[in-house]
Computed example of a mutant assay.
Amino acid sequence: MTAALLYPFIIVAGILQALGNSMNAQLRGHLVNPFLAASVSFLPIVFVFATLFLVMPAPLPSMENLASMPWYAPLGGVAGAVAVFGGLAFVDKVGAGPFNGLTLTANILTSLALDAFGMFGLQGGGFKPMPWLGGLLMAIGVSFIARATPGDTHEQDAGHGLDGRLLYPFIVVAGALQAIGVVWNAQLRGALLNPWLAATVSFLPVVFVFVLVFLLLPKPLPQRTDVEGVRWWMPLAGLTGAVAVFAGLLFVDKVGAGAFNGLLITANLLTSVALDHFGLLGMKQVTAGPSRLGGATVMVAGIVLISVF
């Protein structure tokens, strides 16, 4: 199958990922405790993938498959979840714009490096100037969108005694791990053969970590009025976001990490701009002005360079 035929599925995954982010934001607002919200969001994912594996248990990996599996492969979900932890810990200190801009830029550039050097089982393509130019354009586009995002100032840092810019290196690492996690998940799928089993194994450690942190830090807890405000679709946020992880399991080794993450991120951000513009899913309405639209246009140009060349 031609890799380009997979692009529409990756774009849909990016759209669902953006919807999941907004749904998660609403869930966190009502459940108050971010670790409780994350646990509620991730638990249905494990349930669904485990159920699908029980219904469709074939194929199963052999002992040779398991023996050849890289030690890091089952940690792909945990690597990707670092960005979630980073958002929980740092977004209020550095602002949503800088956080998302740094995370996505690190994701894009790391993906291109993985493709260029053939790391973690990918086929190395060497240095190609046009995809890297596309990565630069995407980083510029992200920065324009981030500038136009409400709450991206450092006024929130006042009073906590820490310059938010000191956290930038940690946020960059989170974005890089997000890209690496996609490739590790592909390695996991290759070793376990069954995509449903691979997805279950990938998400189980993430759920364990979030539940453990919630048990250690159970406060604050939501009040009854908070819980009553939870809409039926809010706990499904994790499932919509999980589509992107599952797409990575299936497609990243076929289209390349750069093209996969570039398409995913572009679809994600364009959908986010639309959600903000129309105030959907409870998001604060923010008109898509010249800065956001210009950034989106530059990002589309960047992904064309990454995908074509």
Rank of each mutant, 00 (worst) to 15 (best):
L166T: 06
P290T: 13
A179D: 07
P74L: 10
F47N: 04
F99D: 02
V46R: 01
T297D: 03
A158F: 03
F99L: 12
T2F: 05
W132F: 15
A146G: 02
G294N: 02
M234R: 06
N268F: 04
I15L: 01
A81K: 10
P74Q: 11
W71V: 15
P220Y: 09
R231T: 08
I11K: 11
L52V: 02
G77D: 10
A296Q: 14
G101N: 12
A67P: 05
L188D: 00
V48I: 15
N21H: 05
L16E: 03
E64L: 06
V298W: 02
T103C: 09
K128F: 10
P150V: 06
P131L: 05
S39A: 15
P195G: 05
V209L: 11
R224F: 02
L109G: 10
L281Q: 10
L215Y: 06
L31W: 01
Q156A: 15
V55H: 12
T2M: 10
M56E: 09
T200Y: 02
A288P: 03
L192A: 09
I180L: 15
F214P: 00
G29W: 04
L264G: 04
D92V: 11
S291Y: 14
L216Y: 05
G95A: 10
G289S: 09
Q17I: 07
F127Q: 10
L88W: 02
P70D: 07
G289E: 14
A13W: 00
A148W: 10
A146P: 11
A25W: 10
A13D: 03
V243S: 12
V82H: 06
Q285N: 08
V82N: 07
S68H: 13
D115E: 01
A13R: 01
V78Q: 08
G164R: 00
P74R: 08
F251I: 07
P59E: 08
V48Y: 06
G159M: 13
W233Y: 13
T271K: 04
A139C: 14
S68N: 09
M1V: 06
V94F: 10
A186I: 00
F90E: 02
P131A: 07
A186G: 15
V94A: 06
P195A: 05
I140F: 12
L104M: 10
T200C: 04
V206G: 07
V227M: 04
L136F: 14
T149Q: 07
V255R: 04
M283T: 13
Y72K: 03
G29E: 14
V209K: 03
L280Y: 00
Q178D: 04
N268R: 09
F127M: 11
L264Q: 03
P195K: 01
S307Y: 08
L215F: 15
M138T: 14
E228R: 12
L269F: 07
F42C: 03
M119G: 08
P44T: 14
L109H: 09
S22K: 13
P195T: 03
N100E: 02
